[in-house]
Amino acid sequence: MSSLLEAWELSTGLFRDGFFALLVAAFVLPAIGTLLVLRRMPFVAVAVPGIAGSGVAFAYFIWPAIFAMAYETLDPPHTFFQNLCAFLFLALGLYWLSSRSSRERIESGAALLFVISLALSEILLLDSIYDEFSHRWLHHGHVLSILEDGRNRVIATCLILATVSIYYRRELWLTAIDREQAALSGLPERRWLLIHLSLAGIASGMIVPEIGPQAVLGLLLIPATISFPAARSLSGYAWTCSMIGVISTLLTFWLSIVRDWPISPALLVVLAIVSLIHRGIKQQFWSSSPSA
């Protein structure tokens, strides 16, 4: 009990900005992930944060070369510059993905981009002048040291994404699950695919430099994939995944403070466990319910 209280005090005190940034991201990103899984594009959820991560690695690589004269210290690149590089890489990657002719080809392209961006990140980081700590920072994010402006950036991005997703939820759902019906309803497939990819791209481009590609990937993919067979309606699916994200974040902070685990890997494990528990409970409940 005391460890819970201690974790809560630290989360809402010393690590307040990071805690609230991750909490809001954990509410919004799983709902966006459900759209990717409904579209049968789970690998896009893996690739997009990876591409953004390689953009950030590129920022680490190029920053000293450009600004070496202006900055004498080896501070990490300015966040705006990291966002800019992440968006540049995402724009190229998503444009290429959206030009592919079918969902299967988009998925195979996403897998290819993920592998390439992973390798590129490693090479760029090894060739940069930053130390091991910065490399870990890049992979895992720096949730515990997020400052007020980083928190505001994450929350503002999440608010915009949530507003767009809620406003256009029917269009996003319909184009994801039934393209022929969407075409008959006057919803052009390519336009909505681009909007869809852009949502994931904006989420990754803005949030990856703060909480890291690993956490973004986990939040987009894990609840949406594991809870998929345990939901019965589209809105229920999205809400459930958001709640799994929030509960997992609270547990992750507790574990991270009590056991001194790094936030991102801990979040991935907790997301998987909470999602599996939810799925097990739901399926147990359904098997005893004749109306399911």
């Binding site: 699950i177 393209r179 998929f228």
Partner: peptide, 9 residues
């Protein structure tokens, strides 16, 4: 075009 586990009511 939905499999049996699709969460669509």
């Amino acid at each position: 075009p939905l499999t049996e586990d699709y969460p669509v009511s």
